[in-house]
């Protein structure tokens, strides 16, 4: 059954042009995308293509001057502001983009504890927190660490651990490998794949096409705020991308590990 169903989602921003005229600028237009349980969908696009807006719209985190049209359904139920607020962190979890989403003044252990409290997990023990860390290759010692002592890769794993505490059904990761070297990036994609293999839905927002193709089931390609293609990841790997839509194919062939040709 479809877990997340986004239908013709449009996000515009209301801005002033000149002194008093207001205009709505479309930043995401007519995006339609489904995510099933056990499926990992990558949302690919260059910076400014509108990828993060998608995550923020689903999680109800858009700024007040955003104008949203279209529908977002979770398990068939329409998401409105109050419904999102109820699901956020419990059944829908965000793995945020940067380290700054961690509280710099609290240890990792406490922040995992807070996450458990937020989702209403009763009897959450130290052992549970350790288990959450272990799952992402971090040991018990990290419970006492403060965020600034973590490297980018470790911080990402801590955020994955925090997101996993509520045992969400849908995980949305916003650029989870930004600033990570390939070894760490691959691990993070591996952990996200693990969520999908456990039967959760995963949306990973990324501008790393090669990594997205390697671990996701499907790749949705965004260009200037519009979805231009939704491809099976396997199609990329067959015969240099034969059968892909022309734009997806051009992107794939432009990668330095392929033809590096524009």
């Amino acid at each position: 059954m479809t877990l997340l169903s986004v239908d013709r989602l449009t996000v515009a921003f209301r801005r002033y042009s000149g002194l008093i005229d207001r205009v709505d600028i479309d930043c995401l237009a007519d995006l339609t995308l489904d995510v099933a349980r056990g499926e990992m969908v990558a949302l690919f696009g260059a910076s400014g293509a509108g990828k993060s807006l998608f995550a923020h719209a689903v999680l109800g985190l858009l700024p007040p001057n955003a104008v949203v049209n279209g529908s977002i359904r979770f398990e068939g139920e329409r998401l409105d502001a109050s419904r999102i607020a109820h699901l956020r962190g419990r059944r829908i979890a965000l793995v945020p983009q940067s380290l700054s989403h961690l509280d710099p003044l609290a240890t990792v252990g406490r922040q995992i504890g807070w996450a458990a409290k937020r989702v209403g997990r009763k009897g959450f023990t130290r052992e549970d927190a350790v288990a959450a860390l272990n799952r992402f290759g971090l040991d018990e010692l990290f419970l006492e660490s403060y965020p600034h002592t973590l490297s980018g890769g470790m911080a990402r794993r801590v955020m994955l651990a925090i997101a996993s505490v509520g045992d969400p059904d849908l995980v949305i990761a916003d650029e989870p490998t930004n600033g990570l070297d390939p070894v760490n990036a691959e691990k993070v994609f591996g952990f996200l794949r693990g969520f999908a293999d456990d039967g959760k839905g995963v949306v990973v927002i990324s501008h790393d096409l090669a990594a997205a193709v390697a671990s996701a089931d499907r790749v949705a390609v965004l260009r200037d705020g519009a979805l231009v293609a939704t491809e099976q990841a396997a199609t990329f790997m067959r015969n240099g991308g034969e059968g892909l839509t022309p734009y997806a194919r051009a992107l794939w062939r432009a990668l330095p590990q392929h033809e590096f040709r524009a």
């Binding site: 696009g45 260059a46 794939w252 524009a262």
Partner: peptide
């Protein structure tokens, strides 16, 4: 690194 592969290839060329 923040650009799509097409823009990347064009700029480097």
């Amino acid at each position: 690194s923040m650009l799509d592969p097409l823009a990347q290839a064009e700029i480097w060329k």
